[in-house]
Write a protein that binds this DNA or RNA. Sequence first.
DNA 1: CGAGTCATTGATCTGTCTCAATATTAGTGG
DNA 2: CCACTAATATTGAGACAGATCAATGACTCG
Lengths: 263, 263
Amino acid sequence: MLEGTPININVKTVCLEHEDVSEQNMNIQTIKVACSNCNLRELCMPIGLDTDEMQKLDAVVAKRRRVKQGENLFSSGDHFTSLYAIRTGFFKTCVSTEDGREQVTGFQMAGEIIGLDGIVSDFHSCNAVALEDADVCVMPFASVEELSREFPVLQRHVHKIMSREIVRENGVMMLLGNMRAEERLAAFLLNLVQRLHARGFSQSELVLRMSREEIGSYLGMKLETVSRTFSKFSDEGIMEVKQRYVRILEPDALKRIFNPQTC
Amino acid sequence: MLEGTPININVKTVCLEHEDVSEQNMNIQTIKVACSNCNLRELCMPIGLDTDEMQKLDAVVAKRRRVKQGENLFSSGDHFTSLYAIRTGFFKTCVSTEDGREQVTGFQMAGEIIGLDGIVSDFHSCNAVALEDADVCVMPFASVEELSREFPVLQRHVHKIMSREIVRENGVMMLLGNMRAEERLAAFLLNLVQRLHARGFSQSELVLRMSREEIGSYLGMKLETVSRTFSKFSDEGIMEVKQRYVRILEPDALKRIFNPQTC
DNA sequence: CGAGTCATTGATCTGTCTCAATATTAGTGG
DNA sequence: CCACTAATATTGAGACAGATCAATGACTCG
């Protein structure tokens, strides 16, 4: 409900942590990315492209960029040129007020697209920060638009990505406007494991890439409340929590918290 | 910041309340809408279309639909076919949980586009409810996509509309996650008058189309708190409030509440 | 190993919610 | 036109979830 993953794709062999050594040793500028050859394409690219179309797409996604943990992929105020498809790593996006308050607006993982906020004004309005060393495909938006005019399938895909983000944010608004701390954290965790599971990871175990403070910022609560709620879940036997490691023992209990009706 | 109106257009003669009597008496099915002839086109349509392009656009926006106060333009679960451009009237969009909690995700007025939530799954995920008798242009999404492939200017416009909605929701998340009741209401009112002003209405006077409960739902607070906050603003001389009529006396004081830094 | 960051836990405080009563307005029918 | 009703808004008093302040503990990384 939170992050947009209505697409239920069975990724066969996703290995997010490792890459070809050959690629790693290449100069960043000369790295050739090929969507046609990417094990994430089922997550971020439309299905139904023929060989010719795939080749043209490969040409658009010509560059890759590495972002070290803690660095910004883009910042509020930066000129908008490209969308980014995450290959590896984990990001947060956040907006901030002049008086320094920060709101995390989302967490993004491999296969997801960031940068959509920049389209409207040609400037980014949020920061995208790598929460671990990351690797993204750079997709110049002008090229994306050009190609979408040629390929209706790609056009539709771009529209869906944007719509999905709108629907996701609707869900977050519901969370922030209507739910209590426990419900928020339950929904957040369920969403995270669901997305990780779609990428070949466990349904029950996860390592959080973000701090308690970042979770709190996303969920509209203070870090102490996040910590206390984790402890509460732990005490109730719903999950094991050791710092950033979480093992969900009673997924049904979590779902019941999130959605009391379906119990 | 809340609703997307970074476009600063000077609409010369906008008259939202009245229409040609000739149009009103026509059968709804046979009403011919012409963007080329619409006094809202500067709000909802891209600039820079030539005559030929305008004509093709007129063909896409071929139908109009009237929605009475309290009725839904579309509902969660409805099949998605079209986007809607509001000609007259005022809408709220809202999502709800199975256990009946409702979250208002936005208020939309003339010149704004609704229905974007339906693109991702081909089904709407929220309700669009008319808060006063309304009149919308129906834009079949398939036609919009077809035409965007032909006209880069239109394509870019559609992308901007979706991006604007994403950025707006980022702002709402900041509001819900980080701000106190007074700040939320101040930001909400400033946003409303700004958008109304862009449509030719007063900068200082407005009549709210929504109830205290609906404002509260949007801002993540209870209706009593909304009412109390209005009373507080009134006591402080910042505004006159008589039920749904509001006259802002000290816009700067409001801005200071919303953004304490810029004082 | 040590310094710094991050997480946990406790005690207290407070903004908003909840419950409740009253006031105002809009809508209806006689 | 007015009484009547239902819906909406205001205001008060008390309760509570979560914030704040503060101290300790655990982990990370150079």
